[in-house]
Each structure stands twice: as C-alpha cells, then as structure tokens.
C-alpha cells in the first residue's frame, strides 16, 4: 500500500483535494480508487467555466472493467481540466496524486466531510476488514 500524501484531504468516495495557494482546489481520485478500477481507458471531463454542485457528477472515469462517476466533493466553477487524460487516461493509474489529477475548481462553498490522511487510512483499513 502506497503512502498517502500528507498535504491532501480525502473523501469516502475515494477522491482527494488539494488546497492551492491561489484559493483553487485540485481534485483527483486516490490510489485505492485507481487500483479498484483497474487500467483506465477513457476519462470524460467537464467543460472549463462549467459550474458544478457539491455531490454532482463532475467527470466519468472508465476502466477496462467499468465506468465510474466522479462526484464533485466541493461546489464551484471548473477553471482547468487535465487535458492530458484524453490521450493518456492511464496517468491516473500511474500517478493518481500527481500527473493523474482530474480538475481544478474555484470553490464557491465548503467541501463536505473530508478526512486527513490518517483518518482516510483508517477508513481504508476498515474497508479491508
């Protein structure tokens, strides 16, 4: 099991959020999520400037196995999407916390329940039981 980056917060839907210095939030899926999905083959991204609601569908990641919705863990406006994923969706498998980021939002409210790395690790451990 890989180490969880300490500068991120996590959701029960296996997404991560990074608070950027300019006030925006970068979002991706966790290593646990990419491993469960298997090799990714397609990512459907939102439009830049699109508004998303907290809990609303924000992107779709499709693996060899299944399609999985990525829900916005925080409401806001999409200011950037990771266009590299269109040609290289497997970046999410290879580097889920880095090159495999999915969107950057300018938040319009607070995130829902998020967990620090220790709490997310405890959540994962409990899933394994």
């Amino acid at each position: 099991m890989s180490e969880l980056p300490g500068d991120l917060v996590y959701t029960k839907e296996h997404e991560w959020l990074r608070q950027e210095e300019d006030g925006s939030v970068t979002i991706g899926v966790t290593d646990h999520a990419q491993a469960a999905l298997g090799d990714l083959v397609y990512v459907e991204l939102p439009e830049v400037d699109q508004d998303v609601e907290r809990g609303g569908e924000m992107a779709v990641v499709e693996s060899v196995k299944a399609a999985s919705d990525v829900y916005a863990p925080i409401g806001g406006t999409v200011i950037q999407v990771n266009e590299d994923l269109a040609d290289d969706p497997e970046k999410i498998n290879a580097d889920p916390y880095g090159d495999g980021w999915i969107v950057r939002l300018q938040p319009s409210g607070d995130a829902g329940d998020t967990m620090d790395p220790d709490a997310y690790q405890a959540f994962l451990d409990q899933l394994d039981e």
């Binding site: 298997g38 090799d39 083959v41 060899v64 196995k65 497997e90 498998n93």
Partner: peptide, 8 residues
C-alpha cells in the same frame, strides 16, 4: 484472478 497488476 482478475489481473496480476495490469489487465492491458
């Protein structure tokens, strides 16, 4: 076994 690391 579903895969041993990478199905692709």
């Amino acid at each position: 076994p579903l895969h041993y690391g990478s199905q692709l």
